[in-house]
């Protein structure tokens, strides 16, 4: 058993599992589980733990957008310098270099529509090397990281069967 892989798989599904929980699930000792988690943390493989939630159920009116960005690549470093520069904005939650029609895909979170629009107009598109942007505001989330939001599937089972 590749212990690190198994533990990462468990934590990816439920980040709140304790070392004792992990030990029970993988039939190993709690000490071994704790040691392995500590190593994954110190190696920087596990970068943090957080909850995931369905924002649509929250009163706050935050707005999220996926923004495609076209860049002009630079000598020595390609897209890296600009991508890092964009990553520094706290509104920018994720940054990916992608294949296809655009070069970067960003996930941006703002207080409202205007907030995101201002960010695009005043911060993002004026960066040297940014050729164009295309902003997609997210309207509804159905599934994230393998989890269905408001999953209404259910299964009727008899309580005792052979």
């Amino acid at each position: 058993m590749d212990l690190e892989k198994e533990i990462l798989r468990l934590l990816a599904e439920d980040g709140r599992l304790t070392a004792a929980d992990i030990a029970e699930r993988l039939n190993i000792s709690a000490a071994a589980a704790a040691r392995c988690v500590a190593k994954l943390e110190s190696d920087g493989v596990i970068v943090g733990y957080r909850a995931m939630f369905d924002e649509t159920l929250l009163p706050e009116n935050a707005v999220k957008a996926i923004i495609e960005v076209k860049l002009k690549p630079e000598r020595d470093g390609g897209f890296d310098r600009i991508a890092k520069k964009i990553s520094k904005f706290s509104k920018v939650e994720s940054v990916y270099l992608v294949s296809g029609g655009s070069d970067l895909v960003l996930e941006v979170k703002g207080e409202d529509l205007k907030d995101v629009a201002e960010f695009v107009a005043e911060k993002l598109s004026i960066i040297d090397g940014v050729v164009s942007t295309s902003t997609h505001f997210l309207l509804k989330k159905y599934k994230e990281l393998g989890k269905m939001m408001q999953d209404d599937e259910y299964k009727e089972r008899l309580s005792v069967t052979p």
């Binding site: 089972r157 008899l158 309580s159 005792v160 069967t161 052979p162």
Partner: peptide
Amino acid sequence: FFELVRQMEEVISLGVGE
């Protein structure tokens, strides 16, 4: 046994075979 279980509410069942 199934009949017995059916008459009760809020049972956690480890009695299934599927």
